[in-house]
Every structure is written in C-alpha cells, then in structure tokens.
C-alpha cells in the first residue's frame, strides 16, 4: 500500500463528498455522487479488497448514478440548498 496515493484519494473523496451535497443542481449532485463512488472504488482496490471494489465500480458508480439521473429526470433539477 502506498500511503501518498491513499492520502491523495482520501482528500479527493472528502472534497467530492462535500461537493455532492453542496452543489445547487440535482443532476450535478447525481454526477458528483458517481465520482464519489468511483473514488471509493479506487480506495478499496488500494486496500486490497478487490471484490468490494469491483462491486462498487459496477453498483455505486454505474447503476446508482443511473438511478439518480432517472429519478431527477422524472422529478425536478431544482434545489434550494
């Protein structure tokens, strides 16, 4: 395990996580959440949890983002916060 890489991705995860809940557009939040999930997947592959990383790459970054986009498409992009 390379701790520099680990720290860099952990910082990115926190930044993207804060971004996902502060951006003032729900479609943006959905895409930010996809990026967050992908960072998470990288973090798990660094830790050696390959099965978990694979699941997160297909489920979190793939299907969840599609669900979010579908829900935003069926409702509204507007958000006050």
């Amino acid at each position: 395990m390379i701790w520099q890489l680990d720290l860099a991705i952990l910082t990115l995860v926190v930044i993207v996580g804060i971004g996902a809940i502060t951006v003032k557009d729900l479609l943006g939040a959905a895409i930010m959440f996809g990026a967050y999930s992908f960072m998470m997947c990288l973090l798990w592959s660094i830790m050696g949890a390959v099965d978990v990383a694979f699941t997160e790459a297909s489920v979190g970054a793939g299907v969840s983002t599609v669900f979010f986009v579908a829900a935003v498409f069926r409702t509204t992009r507007r958000t006050k916060d």
């Binding site: 996902a20 809940i21 729900l26 939040a29 959905a30 959440f33 979010f68 829900a71 935003v72 409702t75 958000t79 006050k80 916060d81």
Partner: peptide
C-alpha cells in the same frame, strides 16, 4: 439538507 434527493445522497 432541505431537498429529499440531497438527503438520499
């Protein structure tokens, strides 16, 4: 957060 989708995120 006030928005329900934001809460789900």
């Amino acid at each position: 957060k006030n928005n329900l989708i934001k809460k789900i995120v």
